[in-house]
Amino acid sequence: MEAILLESVLAPYLPAFLYFAVVAATAAGFLIASRLLGPRRRDPLKLSTYECGVPLLGGTRDRFSVKFYLVAILFVLFDIETVFLIPWAVEFRQFGWLGILEMFIFLGILIIGLVYAFKRGALKWD
């Protein structure tokens, strides 16, 4: 069982892992090369935060609009939906009309949710 899993399911991912290693090593190598080649002359002004040439105004650990959180929640909702749709999509031809009916019920519930969010003004941005 384990041998089958290794050979048929995980084997195609071996090149992907190798590719990941190559990319990550190159990125780190670029940084190390720059550290070795570049000059190192530090002064307080150079290391200060960029603020278009004027002294720093205000902090950064500040509040921002709650709308962004709403977008994040909507994203989680619809992304999970996509994840649920993918296995159905691949096996779509086998399921036939019954499968499509079930998926339409699932999509219908989600579209009702989208319409509700739309009506409550969750998608309005001003």
Partner: peptide, 8 residues
Amino acid sequence: TVKEDIIP
């Protein structure tokens, strides 16, 4: 690559 590597 040969520029200084600045961390604020």
